[in-house]
């Protein structure tokens, strides 16, 4: 299996000079291609911080994050943005589609940033919308879509750049049960059929149940790293 993420001994302290808060403490995390991993833990356990560090949005105070052989902690801010564009897909809790663009334009945007040719953009967009089951909503603006539909468009946007993996920060938190299940079905299908690597931070039991690997964080440290069933028994996850 190909290693996609190798986070080694990473540490993040907020307010080091005033009231230090250790958000992530000496975490080692190794992810292979095709993993479907959930990061769980109570609020303030460091899930989002760990995702931000892995996603290159934040820099650790100690340790290294190696993605596809590149230590992203050593990249300059501009190179890091470029790295994220080509290697990491993001799905956010509150969808974050650009309201003035249609669903298609939201997905196209990321490819335009990558300078993908127009003809290829069209092919990929059509394929992505087919995969998320929203071919008939391509020219609709986000405000005219349900929350679930918007999150599916966000997944398509994350996939559009052909990333190494997708980081999803509580992707089902704002969705009803049906929409959440639908979204998870799509993600699971993409994981199974295209071997796409997914890492979620979540409180949602449905996500945890469908994850093939569950990493539990407590006080910034990995508490358990195992299957959902054992995690569920070992550590009660609540919203």
């Amino acid at each position: 299996m190909k290693t996609v993420i190798d986070a080694h001994n990473i540490k993040k302290i907020y307010n080091p000079e005033t009231v230090p808060v250790v958000a992530v403490n000496n975490v080692h995390l190794h992810l292979e291609r095709g993993e479907f991993t959930a990061l769980v833990g109570p609020s303030g356990s460091g899930k989002t911080t760990l995702l931000n560090l892995i996603g290159g949005l934040d820099k650790p105070d100690n340790g290294s994050v190696i993605i596809n052989g590149v230590d992203i902690t050593r990249l300059s801010a501009n190179k890091l943005i470029d790295f994220r564009l080509h290697n990491i897909g993001f799905v956010f809790q509150s969808f974050n589609l650009i309201p003035v663009l249609s669903a298609r334009e939201n997905v196209e945007l990321i490819m335009q940033l990558q300078h993908v040719k127009k003809a290829e953009i069209n092919v990929r967009v059509t394929s992505l919308f087919r995969q998320i089951g929203l071919e008939d909503k391509m020219d609709v603006r986000p405000a005219q879509l349900s929350g679930g539909q918007q999150q599916r468009i966000a997944v398509a946007r994350a996939l559009a750049s052909r990333p190494q993996f997708i980081l999803a920060d509580e992707p089902t938190a704002n969705l009803d049960t049906k929409s959440a299940d639908n979204l998870l079905d799509i993600m699971a299908k993409l994981n199974k059929e295209e071997n796409m690597t997914f890492i979620f931070s979540t409180h949602d039991q449905r996500v945890i149940e469908r994850a093939r690997r569950v990493v539990t964080l407590v006080d910034g440290q990995i508490h358990t790293d195992s299957s959902p069933v054992s995690v569920h028994a070992d550590y009660p996850v609540t919203a």
């Binding site: 949005l57 943005i81 994220r84 564009l85 080509h86 993001f90 940033l113 946007r157 994350a158």
Partner: peptide, 14 residues
């Protein structure tokens, strides 16, 4: 502000 942060996060250069 949130949107700008999100766009930078997904890879739009500043």
């Amino acid at each position: 502000r949130y949107e700008v942060g999100m766009l930078v996060a997904i890879g739009m250069k500043k």
